[in-house]
């Protein structure tokens, strides 16, 4: 269609143990491309900007409509989803880097286990399994459902962990995503039956809620505009009260 090209710089890495390097790509422009379709173009024709044959760039993607979070990477310095990163709206050369807060597996592919393990640790679900039918659960007030719905938009993409200065190789901080899920499931009428247990998980061991340093990058970076810092502050209050209950004594099971 035209001779226009898209200039890209991609930070690549062979495997988890090797060091990273930059590679330039120059790919033919088509209208309405996003970063994913640009990466697909490289996969179709894996040639770098100097014309040398190279390996296709590895990256993760699944839903292609910003609900799964798999294709998250650092694009021009900002962690975000590559499916909704439109080429026409990006400054060139477009710089792609892996979200290096997580262990890099290959090129732009990272291992986000750290976050998924945290979600398991805090029991980010409503336990309903049992030996008999428990019947319908309690109803949730509409006003609460409305703000809880905002928290439920989290797709575990990991952008908030990448943005957080306290989530890094030197710290075990659980990060904003899993914290906000604690608030979500503690707000649920059935989930609240495990409220104290979830709060205590955040207060035990290293890397709990107290590791938050209030840089508030998470709430700025979140692609779903989840009020993460409000969640963290609300949990700060909840853990304060829980610690008083635990120390001074009370019926602290919920």
């Amino acid at each position: 269609m035209s001779d226009q090209t898209i200039e890209m710089i991609i930070v690549r890495q062979e495997d988890p143990d090797s060091s990273s390097y930059e590679q330039k790509f120059s790919i033919p422009y088509r209208s309405n491309m996003n970063v994913i379709s640009a990466l697909m173009e490289i996969r179709r024709n894996p040639v770098d900007a100097e014309g040398n044959n190279t390996t296709p760039v590895a990256w993760d993607a699944s839903c292609l409509e910003e609900v799964c979070g798999a294709c998250s990477m650092v694009i021009n310095g900002k962690p975000r989803q590559s499916c909704t990163a439109l080429i026409d709206k990006l400054e060139q050369p477009i710089r792609l880097e892996p979200m290096n807060t997580f262990p890099v597996m290959r090129d732009l592919t990272v291992d986000r286990s750290r976050m998924f393990d945290s979600l398991k640790r805090v029991k980010a679900w409503v336990p309903i399994d049992g030996t008999h039918d428990l019947g319908p659960g309690p109803r949730m007030p509409e006003a609460k459902r409305q703000w809880a719905y905002e928290l439920s938009k989290c797709m575990s993409c990991g952008v908030c962990l990448q943005a957080c200065p306290n989530v890094n190789d030197k710290s075990d901080f659980i990060g904003p995503a899993a914290l906000s899920q604690v608030r979500l499931f503690n707000a649920h009428p059935t989930g609240a039956m495990h409220k104290a247990e979830r709060l205590e998980t955040l207060m035990e061991g290293d890397g709990g809620i107290a590791n938050c340093g209030n840089s508030q990058n998470c709430v700025e970076a979140c692609p779903k505009e989840i009020p993460l810092t409000t969640s963290i502050a609300a949990l700060n209050r909840a853990t304060t009260l829980q610690s008083f209950k635990n120390f001074f004594g009370s019926d602290n099971t919920a």
């Binding site: 938050c212 209030n214 009020p227 810092t229 409000t230 502050a233 609300a234 700060n236 209050r237 009260l241």
Partner: peptide
């Protein structure tokens, strides 16, 4: 923020 006094933005 740490003690949960100021929660809302």
């Amino acid at each position: 923020v740490t003690w949960g006094i100021t929660v809302t933005p």
